[in-house]
Amino acid sequence: MSGSAEPFVSPGAPGGGSPNPFVPPHPGPPVNPFAAPAGPAPYAQDSHVPPPPIAPDGPGQVPYGYPGGGYGYPGAAPQGYYGWPGMQPLPSNGMGTAGLVLGILSALVFCLWPLAIVLGVLGVIFGAIGRGKARRGVATNPGQALAGIICGAAGIALGIGMVVLLVVT
């Protein structure tokens, strides 16, 4: 190594080079970021891009605000519209579910025999009401209601068995 160090000069730099190699050799004119873009619009209507494919079950619901669909136009409800008029009521599954929950609780807490017997009786009653609603077509859970009757009866039997065990001992 010799004693004199020369600064690095970028090759091809005008005027004998620049001491900084990271400066671009010919800076262009300043760019106006607010100017309109030059050339055609990126999504022009005359582009040669095909329309998107249609789903197998049709084009779907037209978004709100477009002609031919949405809520802002007379007769705009597309075919197959399931709105409020003529809508079926929701099923009344509460009694069958309550019977199932109370029946399971009565079977689980059979050591607390008074609570188990009360919960079991309520589970059988709610299960029977839920089973009747399912038979009439108002509810859709006849299996849960039947399971509530069975679990409630098992809870009653376990509670009475606990009473008998306590009386005998």
Rank of each mutant, 00 (worst) to 15 (best):
G15M: 05
Q79K: 11
A38G: 09
G60T: 05
P40D: 02
P114L: 06
P24H: 09
Y73K: 10
P89F: 09
L119P: 00
A139W: 10
F34H: 08
S106R: 00
N93I: 08
T97A: 11
Q61D: 14
G130N: 10
Q88K: 15
G96P: 07
P91H: 01
G137Q: 09
N20T: 00
A41R: 07
A147E: 05
G68I: 05
A55K: 12
L119Q: 10
L166Y: 15
P33L: 12
A154N: 07
V62H: 06
P50K: 09
S18T: 01
G99N: 12
Q144M: 15
G65N: 03
A107N: 13
N141M: 13
V124M: 14
T140Y: 06
G28Q: 11
S47Y: 04
L166T: 14
L158S: 08
G159Y: 01
L112G: 05
M1G: 14
A153C: 08
Y73G: 05
V124H: 03
S47E: 11
A107Y: 14
G58T: 09
P24Q: 13
P11H: 02
C111Q: 13
A98C: 12
G130D: 08
P89Y: 08
G152T: 01
A38D: 06
G28H: 09
A44K: 11
Y43V: 07
C111F: 12
P42F: 10
A107K: 03
G12V: 00
S106Q: 00
A116F: 05
L112K: 11
G137T: 08
P11A: 02
V118C: 04
V31M: 03
S106G: 01
A153E: 04
G16E: 00
A38V: 09
I104H: 03
Y66F: 12
